[in-house]
Design a binder for these strands. Structure first.
Lengths: 118, 118
DNA sequence: GTCCTTATTGACAAATTGCACATAGGTGTT
DNA sequence: AACACCTATGTGCAATTTGTCAATAAGGAC
């Protein structure tokens, strides 16, 4: 099963990627590569998308003002772009959370109907 | 706020469109136009996408074997394409439901972290 | 020097979406 | 008859998004 059908399964959708990134960044600024681990830790299936998608999403979020970035040249290894959440990003996340409950209810309702309830 | 950012908000994503369609079709076969009302009734925000997207999604689902269709020429008005769920579609829906709980937990976790918990 | 790991980005085809428009049958109106 | 309107489905095309692969770059291990 390919494309949108695979994507609509758990954790694959990038719909959860943006709020998940914002939630992680709200705790502390981090760089893209370590975000992969942190996102995986909170339950997002990171194996469904390539790292490049995460980086691209972060850049898109920066362009739209949800996050800001600074280069970290002090650590060993290649340079890291460290992302921080902005006020706009915090508002966006808060907004997302307030509708998340309706989101959950919709999922629950689909499950109920699928199981023959109602 | 445009594109993917608007889309990641409640109900807008077509990630819920496919399982919602399957859940409705599991109760009874219906045609595309009436699906709009039924999807709206269970809580999916249908104003976020044009009817043509629903039709295109249904055709894609048929191509992938999740649903099958027959023309209903007996009713008054223009012909209706009536969709029914297939065995493949039922399996897909069941599969989606079994991961839906993890989906809910992920949303809950993002909300918790966003609210400063954990 | 060569290989591996971390870390980020670019390029390009394929898929998906947004939007407008086309088609078509039926009903009511002037 | 001509017109507008509602139901019902579909197409075309540009714009956006995704999937995949490859490029770059710094440092450590051997």
């Amino acid at each position: 099963m390919n494309g949108r059908f695979r994507k609509c399964m758990y954790g694959a959708g990038t719909d959860f990627l943006i709020p998940a990134i914002l939630a992680v960044l709200k705790k502390e600024p981090v760089h893209g590569y370590s975000l992969l681990e942190k996102l995986s830790a909170i339950g997002l299936n990171t194996s469904f998308f390539h790292p490049s998608i995460l980086y691209r999403t972060l850049r898109a979020m920066e362009i739209h003002g949800l996050v800001s970035s600074n280069w970290d040249l002090q650590t060993s290894g290649p340079a890291r772009r460290v992302y921080s959440i902005t006020k706009v990003g915090e508002d966006f996340l808060e907004n997302w959370c307030s509708t998340a409950m309706e989101n959950i209810q919709l999922i629950q309702k689909i499950v109920d109907i699928a199981k023959g309830g109602e």
